[in-house]
């Protein structure tokens, strides 16, 4: 029997020999936002013409992330981390430049997005699964796993407004994980609920890494960064630089 360490070394060398396929390719991407202190009205629009104050969140960024890589993104608040994650996950489009994404992206930016408080747990699993891009049959196949991992028990038939905050988080995370994404996007201000679930979630994310899935992770948590990420990039004033590689 070979030990885990040797196994992973062999695996790593195999990976290097194989042609690395890119999971995320970003070419010269810029994102400018129109600054609006207040929403422009028709009249303002007519009188002020096309002049508007602009704010550049990302400036000419290029980045290639290969399949199986775990990449950390750090930077001060407001530096453009979330904008970059949003562009990768397709929530918003860049002002210029190109983005190529290979495979299913699931972003854990907000675990509760798409939940409806009036609907019961089961209905919400289907709705949420469809929102993140799963097909009905897929959700049906994973349904038991989702419920089990979330640990919501008989609440599955209760409307979501009866759930505790932790239960909602667990359900959201569970759906996202069992969507079997190729690329997982984790945002900094994510919380996993209680300690037990936190550990299980981290276990899941690590499993993800072992299964050669791609992870993009924005965080301030150095411990997690060291544990999860091979490469770390710094975003500052809309520019990207590589700062560390393990």
């Amino acid at each position: 029997m070979i030990g885990f360490k040797t196994y992973s070394i062999i695996k790593k060398s195999m990976q290097k020999k194989r042609k690395m396929t890119p999971a995320i390719e970003i070419f010269n991407v810029s994102k400018t936002y129109v600054l609006h202190h207040e929403k422009p009205t028709f009249l303002e629009q007519i009188f002020h013409g096309s002049y508007r104050e602009k704010y550049t969140a990302l400036e000419n960024i290029s980045l290639k992330i290969f399949k199986g890589e775990s990449v950390g993104i750090v930077g001060p608040n407001g530096a453009g981390k979330t904008t970059l994650l949003k562009i990768i996950s397709g929530i918003t489009t860049p002002t210029s430049g190109q983005v190529k994404v290979n495979g299913r992206v699931v972003s854990l930016i907000d675990l509760e997005a798409g939940f409806n408080p009036e609907l019961i747990g089961e209905e919400n699993i289907y709705l949420n699964g469809l929102i993140i891009g799963m097909r009905r049959e897929e959700i049906r196949r994973q349904f038991k796993n989702i419920v089990k991992f979330a640990g919501i028990g008989q609440f599955i038939n209760a409307p979501l407004y009866t759930y505790s905050q932790g239960m909602k988080l667990r359900l959201g995370f569970s759906v996202a994980i069992y969507a079997k994404p190729d690329i997982l996007i984790l945002d900094e201000n994510m919380s996993f609920g209680d300690k037990d679930f936190r550990l299980r979630s981290l276990e899941m994310i690590k499993n993800f890494k072992l299964n050669k899935k791609t992870i993009v992770f924005a965080t301030h948590n150095d411990l997690l960064l060291k544990e999860l990420c091979q490469k770390i990039y710094l975003i500052k004033d809309g520019n990207l630089s590589k700062i560390d590689s393990k």
């Binding site: 929530i91 992206v105 930016i109 997005a113 798409g114 929102i131 993140i132």
Partner: peptide, 9 residues
């Protein structure tokens, strides 16, 4: 907006 800002669909 809660959905628009958080998910791609």
């Amino acid at each position: 907006r809660g959905l628009i800002k958080k998910a791609k669909f």
